[in-house]
Design a protein around this nucleic acid. Structure first.
Length: 886
DNA sequence: GTGTTCACG
DNA sequence: ACGTACGTGAACACG
């Protein structure tokens, strides 16, 4: 089946220019837009494997549209010179890559695309149109899909007629009417002034087209009628301007667009000329290989794989000492319960495959000893998971040296595709088939035959072996090797130990709490149904909305995409109107505790150990924090007393022991004081003052005695806001005050804490310049949207730039403390065990005789984890359970 | 699978 | 004018 990808060249290069950080080659020529364009192009080729391709460009300044309307695209800013200089580069590169391009004098790229898609419709050929321009939606049909590019150049959403219907309730043709009514500021198309998307959609749903709206404008009321009638001409003209021309003189072009993969001889040199080294590597075109393997859809690599049976184990034993790379394939999300699928080992050119049965057989003892030997360094993918899965099957694992999963996370913590096949593609290796393709996804997961399986696992092992040196170099270039080898790798073993240890849960206590909750739930529900006058599903926001806003006619405070919002914030505001609301809030609170914490936790308690064994994910959070799953032990209730009681069920696993918890006091603000070098903030921590009270004194210019509860509360919110990357809107929402008032709080704060203001300005500048921000331990986070023109995207990136070094450095610090703590326990031969980490808190179980030691050791180790210009403080407490350790 | 809500730091 | 606080995971409803 033919498949044509048509790219809206001008649109995509424009987007790429603003989405990518500035990037120049050795001669000073800026190349960021070409680079962004090219990465997207390669991605499209890989994802869609097109048989035909074409990039369309605008040609000439005057198009036929200017004959109708001289001001067409009039208000648009001139193309920045940094971008216009990149057009010739892109065109030359496309030629080198072997990707056809069209431009036709007097027409825009839109019109070329419009014509091609019309021809495709007539000839029933498949086309994918790639653009960021919503106008393109008018071209969608059964044969034509529009791939709308959102956010930068990586995020793509596909639209056919049905998706357009779902999103706008319009046919593709009506997209033209939409623009006729609402206009388009960026093309200087006027539309009807005062009519935006919402109004335009309403009108179209009612009347169907611009012509019908005008013809029946007498049916409209008041201002709307006036607007429509005065600007009728404008609407007609706007519709005409928005209509993509589909009759450009083009004929027999199909063969000209044939695409047989990247041109093998010229692609390498063209990329090399632009100094796109990473792309060269990704395509395996660098060095002597240039010109050999150009097609991203090239076949799998050849591997030599020996399947080890019980009888020929001796052969493997002989070469075991040479093995540095292993791959353990597991199945299942929860590594504590994961199934073993197979093991592969790599030595030189030969790969060995061992089935789970063979691995667990008597004869495989040498392999198991090798796996367990901590003095033998091993490289692999997601060794933390491997450790837990093997442990669950009674096999010990130690000696993790280089984990490519963890390395990939450090190199780009926001990259979504962290799979090994994704990494293999990134590092330009021969194609590694994805696990989804080999095994199937979700419920369709199926074990392939042994030949296919052993080949796949062998290739994964070989891929790891190739990726390690490349990542090592990249980590080194980024100054991240210490972070990797001295912090994250050791931590991954410590986390596995904590998870295997688990924390004991008192099931009876938990069940009895559940019974109390159940009674309350039933009582509340009965009362709510009585007041409502009917029974309904209280857990359905949709049904609840019907009751509150239709039946009881309470005012609508906020809407969601799908209907009325009924979140707690809304319900708080509705409470004065009707007694039912307070009951619903109470119901929600208790129902949450019951379903998530009582029932959810009971399901996770292990029958064997009577404990819960969480799984900390080390490669998820963009800031460097951990996350916790199965169950999540980082969000056990504490703020409200009803929920806090749940902490009583977390108990020591041995009689007479205690739970000891230690948490950092104001770690994020202390980190901020250090990195901003703000004298006032540092002073506050040096004197160990109550930071929120101190902030209130400074911001409101009052003495300590004059700070009332409200002032302290406001100051606390401001401090939180500062850490999150403050905006007046966010603060106003949090404090329920006007935006003006919030803005004036912020102004006063920055007046006093001028170093903080300087930091916030500088970190955003730095993010713009480098394209990333980093923590004290050199952890990075890339912010491609920091230069976006879209206000929301850009603002979000700016707040992230402010927040990530703070939250991320705090994460670095507690991770360091964990590594030091683990060493301290081992060195002193203590029996106490580290069980949990909750972002700024560590939880231990401690035998009676070590309690005194631990009460001083833990806070000491935590506060000395990293030396800052302000003291780090950790507060310790203990008791018979987690609730008592407060 | 997506959206809504709510638990934590 | 735009429309948000930063970072997560789990349960439930609904298509």
């Amino acid at each position: 089946m033919d498949k044509l990808i048509v790219i809206d060249g001008n649109n995509i290069i424009y987007r790429a220019f603003f989405a990518m950080p500035p990037l120049t080659n050795a001669s000073g020529q800026q190349t960021n837009a070409v680079y962004g364009f090219t990465t997207m192009l390669l991605r499209l080729i890989e994802d869609y494997k097109p048989s035909h391709m074409m990039v369309a460009f605008d040609a000439g300044k005057e198009t036929f549209r200017h004959a109708d309307y001289q001001e067409y695209k009039g208000k648009r800013e001139k193309t920045p010179p940094e971008l216009s200089g990149q057009f010739p580069l892109l065109k030359e590169l496309l030629q080198g890559l072997g990707v056809p391009q069209f431009e036709i004098a007097g027409y825009e790229a839109d019109d070329i695309i419009g014509t091609l898609t019309r021809m495709a419709d007539e000839e029933k050929r498949n086309v994918i149109v790639v653009s960021g321009d919503k106008d393109m939606l008018q071209l969608a049909s059964d044969n034509v899909t529009i791939a709308m590019v959102r956010k930068g150049v990586t995020d793509i959403e596909s639209y056919g007629p049905s998706e357009i219907q779902d999103k706008y309730g319009l046919t593709p043709q009506q997209i033209i009417d939409l623009k006729g009514l609402m206009g388009d500021a960026s093309d200087n198309i006027p539309g009807i002034p005062g009519v935006g998307e919402k109004t335009a959609l309403k009108l179209l749903h009612e009347y169907g087209s611009v012509e019908q709206v005008l013809e029946r404008s007498d049916e409209l009321k008041g201002k709307m009628k006036e607007k429509v009638q005065t600007h009728a001409d404008s609407a007609v003209l706007s519709k005409k301007l928005a209509t993509i021309h589909r009759e450009v003189p083009l004929e027999q072009v199909w063969d000209d667009m044939k695409f047989d993969g990247l041109h093998p001889d010229t692609a390498g040199p063209a990329l090399a000329k632009l100094e796109f080294k990473s792309l060269l590597e990704r395509l395996n075109l660098s060095g002597q290989d240039a010109g050999t393997a150009a097609d991203p859809a090239r076949p799998e690599a050849e591997v030599q794989v020996r399947t080890v049976t019980m009888d020929d184990m001796h052969e493997l034993s002989a070469v075991l000492s040479d093995v540095k790379v292993l791959h353990v394939e597991t199945h299942g999300d929860n590594p504590h319960h994961a199934e073993l699928v197979g093991l592969s080992l790599a030595t030189g050119d030969t790969q060995y495959y061992i089935s789970p049965a063979v691995l667990q057989s008597e004869g495989a003892e040498p392999v198991r000893e090798w796996l367990a030997d901590s003095s033998i360094p091993k490289n692999g993918y997601d060794l933390h998971r491997v450790d837990l899965a093997l442990h669950a099957h009674g096999i010990l694992f130690a000696g993790a040296a280089f984990d490519v999963h963890l390395a990939a996370y450090l190199l780009d913590p926001t990259e979504g595709n962290q799979t090994l096949s994704g990494l293999a593609a990134k590092y330009g290796m021969s194609h590694l088939v994805s696990d989804d393709d080999v095994f199937g996804k979700g419920a369709k997961w199926k074990l392939p035959d042994e030949e296919k399986l052993s080949g796949h696992l062998a290739r994964k092992c070989a891929a790891v072996a190739q990726i390690v040196p490349m990542q090592e170099k990249e980590l080194n270039d980024n100054g991240m090797l210490p972070l990797f080898h001295d912090l994250e790798m050791p931590l991954s073993r410590i986390l596995a130990d904590m998870e295997k240890q688990g924390i004991a849960v008192n099931r009876e206590e938990l069940k009895s709490l559940g019974q109390e909750f159940q009674q309350q739930i039933e009582k509340l529900a009965a009362e709510i149904y009585r007041i409502a006058g009917e029974e309904f599903n209280l857990n359905s926001p949709k049904q609840l909305g019907e009751i509150l806003f239709v039946k009881l006619e309470l005012p609508v405070i906020k809407k969601t995409k799908t209907g009325y919002s009924t979140d707690a914030e809304v319900l708080e505001k509705l409470a004065p109107y009707h007694d039912i609301v307070q009951l619903i809030l109470q119901y929600r609170t208790i129902a949450k505790l019951q379903s998530t914490y009582v029932e959810g936790l009971l399901k996770e308690v292990s029958d064997e150990s009577g404990k819960v064994h969480t799984y900390y994910r080390q490669t998820i959070a963009a800031t460097g924090r951990l996350s916790s799953q199965f169950p999540n032990l980082q969000n056990i209730p504490i703020r409200l007393e009803e929920g806090r009681k749940l902490r009583k069920v977390f108990v020591p696993s041995e009689p007479g022991w205690s739970i000891l918890a230690a948490d950092y006091s104001q770690i994020e603000l202390r980190v901020l004081a250090h990195i901003s070098d703000d004298e006032r903030l540092k002073e506050a921590f040096v004197q160990d003052l109550d930071i929120h009270t101190k902030t209130a004194m400074d911001v409101f210019r009052v003495s300590q005695d004059e700070v009332d509860g409200n002032m302290r509360r406001s100051a606390k919110a401001v401090n939180f806001g500062i850490v999150y990357g403050i905006s007046d809107y966010g603060l106003s929402q949090n404090l329920n005050i006007t935006r003006k008032e919030a803005a004036s709080f912020i102004d006063q704060y920055f007046e006093v804490f001028q170093g903080v203001r300087r930091y916030m300005d500088e970190i955003v500048q730095q993010a713009r310049k480098d394209g990333y921000v980093k923590t004290l331990l050199e952890r990075r986070r890339y912010l491609p949207e920091i230069n976006a023109r879209n206000f929301n995207l850009r603002s979000f990136a700016e707040r992230t730039a402010m927040n990530t070094p703070i939250q991320g450095t705090a994460a670095d610090i507690i991770k360091l403390a964990m590594v030091h703590m683990d060493a301290a326990l081992a060195e002193r031969k203590l029996k106490s065990r580290m069980l949990l980490q909750v972002h700024d808190e560590l939880v231990f179980e401690v035998p009676q005789e070590e309690l005194e030691t631990m009460k001083t050791l833990v806070p000491e180790v935590m506060s000395r984890a990293l030396e800052l210009s302000v003291p780090l403080k950790a507060e310790v407490s203990f008791g018979d359970n987690w609730y008592e350790a407060k």
